[in-house]
Nucleic acid binder design. Structure first.
Length: 488
RNA sequence: CGGGGCGUAGCGUAGCCCGGUAUCGCGCCUGCUUUGGGAGCAGGAGGUCGUCAGUUCGAAUCUGGCCGCCCCGACCA
């Protein structure tokens, strides 16, 4: 059939690309490196947004919106920050087109006095704005988040994982003390980890980035790292302690309780549509997408099997009230009674699209007072009594959510290797997954290992046990293990 | 930016080496029969072959330029 997928074992990368397109999550657009997120994909993103937004609000944050364009001069104010982003910025230089013999051209007379940068992230415009909002400790903290699009002109792109334009949220907070900002940074990391595990059903490693991997302009970058089915790591979210770097760059001072002027302490944190990639690569199988129930646009699809209009009516008499009962329980059900597609077609379609549960009901079931329930995660089917079916469905959805998490956790644990020598290290990388090893703490060693093996230090895990050891590369003393992996 | 691939109907493709106005599958439309895992039969619609130029009586096919996208590497969330 036209919708047949390749397999993960055969070519994981190809499987992923095909799945994203065939499951109607997204497609390549006419613009290089940019994708169209299709309704099915966007519905999942909306579910993520909803859950995250609630978690942000519950931790005291509010939403606002800052401009897409940033004056070029803002970028040069924080040295590390410029360096980090300079190579991937889209720049607006003109503001008008005109007709010419060669068709529409940029009007050379409409050159901007100062070029505008399409935001790759918003620290600069936000801190320039915060200067006007903050005078006293009474104005602090500022706990703002924005949902936005950003542009990073990457050389190579990949649907959801790395696109030129992507959607994300970026939190930008301002605090009176370093301690408070650090608490905020860590709190948001916990929020992300909570979201990843309880909504995405993706277990994540919480940790701190090394200097090499740190956000440009941050003092510390905390992250959650996921392990995907192909044994590669994916940075799924970051939370940065920015110190006073941006306050100093944009001259944001406040009067503290002692009446002295001080620079404000900052954090920023974000997750993006990259999470969609994490979702797909964590749970899906060779039959198609698998979406955890808590993020599924539709949790249960109900497919009637009937002959003739009368047959459908009889089934609808049962199903229509059931859909209402499910809704009352907060379960989203779709009754697909389209006569334009046959049941088998619908089964295959919803399977490909990852709908967690399917209920089929036909004439035989009407006689027996039963329905057939199928779950997407295990592909198993069972015939169960219609009576009290909504409770059964509710229980199964919870079970599917949990099962997906357990499965992913088991996979991660099985693909986490502890090694003590560089030889073992390289062998472990062949197998894929996380590799826990001693490191001497220098950027040079980290760089060498990266050049030789492509593996990077994904993070230094939080609450990392202290343990005497020797760096696998240099043999120098090390006090703790760090987590390596080949990453997306 | 380097290497590779591709551009032919809505999608996926054959044809290109060896020039003669385009193949097949899916999808789409109509009708009948069907409906518990991507239905069957019959009929039908749909194409400036990415683009510009050249060679030729004649170009999807040969030549040159251009454009675009995808994949693989170096940079990054």
């Amino acid at each position: 059939m036209s919708k047949e997928l390749g397999t993960r074992a055969d070519d994981f990368s190809k499987w992923y690309n095909e799945l994203v397109v065939k499951a109607d999550l997204a497609e390549h657009s006419a613009v290089k490196g940019c994708m169209v997120i299709k309704p099915h994909g966007y519905a999942i993103w909306e579910k993520m947004q909803q859950a995250l937004d609630t978690m942000f609000k519950d931790t005291g944050h509010v939403n606002a919106y800052f401009p897409l364009f940033i004056p070029k001069s803002f970028f040069s104010k924080e040295a590390n920050h410029v360096e980090g982003f300079a190579k991937e910025c889209a720049v607006v230089t003109h503001y008008r087109l005109k007709n010419s013999e060669n068709g529409i051209v940029v009007d050379p007379d409409a050159k901007l006095e100062e070029e505008l940068i399409v935001r790759p992230t918003s620290e600069t415009i936000i801190w320039n704005t915060y200067r006007g909002w903050i005078q006293s400790y009474r104005d602090l903290p500022i706990l703002v988040n924005q949902w936005a699009n950003v542009v990073r002109w990457e050389m190579r792109t990949r649907l959801f994982l790395r696109t030129t334009e992507f959607l994300w949220q970026e939190g930008h907070t301002a605090h009176a003390t370093a301690e408070e900002a650090i608490v905020e940074t860590k709190q948001m990391l916990e929020v992300y980890a909570d979201f990843a595990e309880n909504w995405l059903a993706v277990p994540v490693l919480k940790g701190v980035k090394t200097a090499n991997e740190r956000f440009a302009g941050a003092l510390d970058t905390y992250c959650i790292e996921a392990m995907l089915q192909d044994g590669k790591a994916l940075q799924a979210g970051t939370s940065h302690f920015l110190g006073q770097n941006f306050a100093k760059a944009f001259d944001v001072k406040f009067t503290n309780k002692e009446g002295k002027l001080d620079y404000v302490w900052a954090t920023s944190w974000g997750v993006s549509t990259r999470l969609m990639g994490a979702l797909v690569m964590s749970h899906s199988d060779d039959n198609g997408l698998v979406i955890p129930p808590k993020l599924a646009p539709v949790q249960v699809v109900i497919v009637p099997i009937y002959k003739g209009v009368d047959g459908l009516d009889k089934i609808s008499e049962i199903v229509d009230p059931l859909v209402k009962k499910l809704k009352q329980r907060g379960i989203s059900a779709k009754y697909d009674k389209r006569d334009t597609h046959r049941p088998g077609w619908k089964f295959a379609e919803y399977e490909l699209k990852g709908i967690p549960m399917r209920m089929a009901i036909g004439e035989r079931d009407l006689e027996n007072g039963t329905v057939e329930l199928a779950r997407r995660d295990t592909l198993s089917k069972e015939t169960v009594p219609l009576e009290n079916i909504e409770q059964k469905i509710e229980e199964l959805l919870v079970d599917i959510q949990q099962n997906l998490y357990n499965r992913a956790l088991k996979r991660r644990e099985e693909s986490t290797h502890i090694v003590n020598t560089y030889e073992e290290f390289k062998q472990a990388l062949e197998k894929g997954g996380f590799v826990s090893a001693h490191w001497d703490g220098t950027p040079e060693t980290e760089q060498k290992i990266k050049e030789e093996t492509k593996a990077t230090i994904r993070c230094i895990p939080l609450n990392n046990p202290q343990e005497e050891g020797k760096c696998i590369y240099s043999g120098k003393a090390s006090a703790e293990r760090v987590m390596f992996a080949i990453a997306y």
